[in-house]
Simulated scan of single mutants.
Amino acid sequence: MNLGWKLAATVHGHAPDGLLDTYTRERHPIGAAVLDWSRAQVAAMRPDAHGQAIQGVVRDLLGTRDGTTYVFQKVSGSSIRYDLGGEHPLVGRNAPDLRLEDGTRLGDLMRDGQGIVLDFSVDRCLHGSALGWESRMRYAAGQARNDLGPGAVLVRPDGVVAWAGDRRPDREAFERAAVQWFGSPGA
Rank of each mutant, 00 (worst) to 15 (best):
V161I: 15
A178C: 08
E101S: 15
R59S: 12
R27H: 09
R39A: 15
A162I: 06
Y82K: 01
I80C: 00
D21C: 02
L126F: 08
F182D: 01
L118I: 06
N2P: 10
D166Y: 08
L148S: 06
A9G: 05
R136S: 08
K74F: 01
A43D: 14
E172S: 09
R138E: 07
G159L: 13
L7W: 02
D119M: 13
V34T: 13
N2V: 07
G67R: 10
P89L: 10
N2Q: 05
D83W: 02
V71I: 08
T24S: 05
A141G: 09
S121F: 09
R59Q: 14
R138H: 13
G63A: 09
G142Q: 12
L84T: 02
L131Q: 11
S184M: 11
G103Y: 07
I54K: 07
S129M: 02
Y23T: 03
I30M: 07
L131V: 09
I30Y: 05
S121E: 10
H127E: 14
F120N: 13
L90R: 07
R39D: 13
Q52T: 14
G115M: 02
I80S: 00
G149H: 14
G51D: 12
L3Q: 08
I80N: 03
D83E: 12
V155K: 03
V75N: 13
G142P: 11
P157E: 06
L3N: 07
G18M: 06
I54W: 05
L154H: 04
R138Y: 08
E172V: 12
S38G: 11
V58A: 01
S78W: 09
V71Q: 12
F72W: 11
G92D: 02
M45P: 06
R59A: 14
G132V: 11
E87W: 03
G186E: 04
F72K: 09
H50D: 13
R171H: 06
G4Y: 03
A141D: 04
A144N: 11
A152G: 04
A130F: 07
L84H: 05
G159W: 13
